[in-house]
């Protein structure tokens, strides 16, 4: 189970990186990057999971004495999601600018920076 659950997280990270490597379109690269980042969400939440435990939100049905999953990784994942959204926004804006300046977003055809 370890290899499977965490493996999915590692797979997403690597597949996202693969997307960046083979991308022929910067928008595609940015989206692939966000897939890589979702690997970290999956990893963190899997780390915090506990069998037969509830969410760390106490209320009428869940008393503070019950077992809950790890709230710390969930807080970390929340931050991570915010980071992902903002980085994606910024990089997309940059890609739009690249397109305006160079008329293409294919990294194979971008030639402004070499050597």
């Amino acid at each position: 189970m370890n290899l499977y659950a965490y493996g999915v997280a590692g797979w997403l990270l690597l597949v996202g990186a693969f997307g960046v490597v083979r991308s022929a379109n910067l928008v595609h690269a940015v989206v692939s990057l966000s897939v890589a980042q979702s690997g970290t969400y999956v990893l963190l939440l899997c780390v915090g999971y506990q069998r037969a435990a509830g969410a760390p939100v106490f209320g009428s049905t869940l008393r503070p004495s019950t077992r809950v999953t790890d709230p710390v990784v969930q807080a970390m994942t929340l931050t991570d999601i915010v980071v992902s959204a903002t980085v994606t926004a910024l990089l997309l804006a940059t890609a739009v600018q690249v397109h305006k300046q160079q008329g293409t977003v294919d990294p194979n055809r971008l030639s402004a920076l070499k050597g």
């Binding site: 370890n2 290899l3 965490y6 493996g7 590692g10 990270l13 077992r67 999953t69 790890d70 710390v72």
Partner: peptide, 20 residues
């Protein structure tokens, strides 16, 4: 690297969460 790390981690769904 990941595979070795994952195998060394506590089992998925176990109870060991000191920070929690």
């Amino acid at each position: 690297l990941f595979a070795t790390a994952f195998l060394g981690m506590p089992a998925f769904g176990s109870e060991d969460h000191p920070y929690r």
